[in-house]
Design a protein around this nucleic acid. Structure first.
Lengths: 153, 153
DNA sequence: TATTGTTATACTCTATAACTATA
DNA sequence: TATAGTTATAGAGTATAACAATA
């Protein structure tokens, strides 16, 4: 089977929004209504990059600084993130996940993973393998390799 | 390679939001800033199902009726959709795409497809095939087979 | 009474413009 | 002057609650 880029692009444009809609609905309304997708991704990023700056989060999320600032505001207001001054460069902030934030993050992740795994269980082992391979290929195309600044500087 | 549902679910939860973010950004800011993703999907659905009711659109999109009503309002205000009474059942409406809507839809689709195809072109032929197969598997899992009501009744 | 749709209200997501503080 | 971040403002996406019209 010869697959043109155009054909793969059509498939992505048709199917990806539907998967995304499903993930978003699951996060919003079912087992784990605590986090929206951007909130979940922000929390997960700060968890993996303790002390990250706002710019680092904005870069990872592909959002502007004002959008990211507001997103972070909400998570701080709900006690899931902390924001401190960075003494080495006082223009910057250092973000951190609270214990409460960690609990919410893990609960949300578990609920969503269970939901997705349950759906995927209906596929053949071959199809599951194809999905994993496709996601790895997509990762190389869509996830930029830009890394977080080291928290210190 | 044996792939557990859990592993495939983790991959989906990590990668799909990033692809979606990219598609959304492309639609919003680059070649085709005319339609958001939900607007695009609504227009495409009504194009394929001329005379569809609001409920049919809501069902397809996985949205509530009020949300769908507002979404459609916006497209009507911008001259891309029409809304008429359904004489056979006056509670219902019949939606249609205008010529202007068709032009915008096609322009947006072409721009986004070109953008995606360009990115995908960096993959090997094997990887492109894997992507298409994965999307077909996902379609069976995530796209419900519920069909539109016939426009007449 | 059930179905189809709209209006009112509210919150999140996201952007641009204008600003402050620090380097 | 350039960088990091916030505040103000605004539009889109989405939901629930309350309602009107029709079946």
């Amino acid at each position: 089977m010869i697959v043109a880029s155009e054909e793969a692009a059509r498939e992505l444009l048709e199917v990806v929004p539907v998967i995304m809609k499903d993930i978003r609905s699951e996060m919003r309304t079912r087992r784990s209504p605590d986090l929206t997708v951007p909130q979940f991704r922000t929390l997960a990023f700060v968890d993996r990059n303790e002390g990250a700056s706002l710019s680092a989060v904005a870069n990872h999320m592909g959002l502007t600084l004002p959008s990211t600032s507001k997103l972070v505001d909400g998570l701080i207001a709900r006690g899931m993130l902390t924001r401190e001054d960075n003494v080495a460069d006082r223009r910057r902030v250092k973000l951190g996940v609270t214990n409460h934030g960690l609990v919410i993050l893990e609960t949300s992740r578990r609920g969503t993973l269970n939901y997705l795994a349950d759906k995927i269980a209906s596929l053949s082992a071959d199809d599951r393998e194809v999905v994993v391979k496709a996601m790895n290929a997509m990762r190389s195309v869509f996830i930029s390799s830009i890394q977080t600044q080291a928290p210190g500087k």
